[in-house]
């Protein structure tokens, strides 16, 4: 049985924890609140937390007055295609790096680490020149190439850590049972690696969904713009920042994603713990 002061201290700590948690999430809540406010309430003094007369007008305006749906579709295409492509390549690569005793694997690992940690700005210009040289400037394919360069090292690195966590005896047992290496990979290793694959997918999707610099430099056409540059270009660098609309756009860009991540939370946390830190 704990003493009274101890219990009080515990209560205080709990209160403090919750206060902190709420403070940390406050910007999210403020974004939601603003998105549903009418222009008049936006500038009300004192500011209101919950909208008095919630309205969907900001959302309607964003969808009607800007190409939000086009930007969102582009972002979705680029992020999905890049993620799937990178997952396939990185799964094979990581498996090869971990369970085949390849000659020169240490060199590969070092090079990979270097790639993983390279500053984007350093290779931005050469990568851009290369993509333009391929005739892919200003296109979603060009962005997919660029985003592959951003996500592949990361994905390989993360996956490598996950594959390393799979006990080698499992594959060995399958091989002894007469399975070929590929069969063993598909039937035994892959299922084990699935959580790692999902985690990697979540993060590489996030990287593509977020990316600003490449999209800014590479895309001129309004119809191939992605969400970050589209929103910046039309709603922020415009002639009047209407915060209601900006927050509505921000909400639409982030909330569906947050909900999906909440659902996949286990994998997200795993990504932090296993791959990112150990690897």
């Amino acid at each position: 049985m704990k003493s009274l002061p101890m219990r009080l201290a515990g209560l205080a700590a709990t209160g403090f924890t919750w206060l902190l948690v709420l403070a940390v999430t406050f910007p999210l809540l403020w974004m939601l609140g603003t998105a549903f406010k009418r222009p008049t309430e936006l500038f009300a003094k004192p500011p209101t937390f919950f909208p008095h007369a919630p309205t969907l007008q900001n959302f309607v305006d964003v969808l009607e007055q800007t190409k939000f749906t086009i930007y969102a579709t582009n972002s979705l295409i680029v992020a999905t295609v890049t993620t799937l492509f990178v997952l396939v390549v990185a799964t094979l690569g990581a498996h090869a790096m971990v369970s085949f005793k390849l000659m020169g694997r240490h060199v590969v690992a070092r090079a990979l680490l270097l790639c993983y940690m390279l500053p984007t700005t350093a290779v931005l210009i050469p990568i851009y020149l290369m993509i333009a040289g391929l005739g892919l400037a200003n296109s979603l394919s060009g962005l997919i190439v660029a985003y592959t360069s951003l996500t592949l090292p990361f994905a390989l690195w993360l996956m490598r850590a996950f594959f390393a966590g799979i006990p080698p005896e499992i594959e060995a047992a399958a091989l002894i049972d007469g399975a070929s290496r590929l069969r063993a990979f598909v039937d035994v290793v892959l299922p084990q690696a699935l959580p790692g694959i999902v985690t990697t997918g979540v993060f590489s999707f996030l990287i593509c969904w977020n990316e600003y610099l490449y999209s800014l430099v590479m895309i001129n056409d309004d119809r191939t713009r992605t969400l970050p540059t589209g929103i910046m270009g039309t709603l922020v660098n415009g002639y009047a920042i209407e915060w209601g609309m900006v927050m509505a756009a921000a909400t639409m860009m982030s909330v569906p994603l947050l909900l999906v991540f909440l659902f996949l939370q286990r994998y997200v946390v795993q990504g932090f713990g296993a791959g990112a830190v150990k690897g």
Binding site: L28, W30, M232, F261
Partner: peptide, 14 residues
């Protein structure tokens, strides 16, 4: 976890 999962643009704008 929310702040980490918020797109950079959204975080900057908010």
């Amino acid at each position: 976890l929310f702040p980490y999962l918020m797109p950079v643009l959204v975080a900057a704008l908010v």
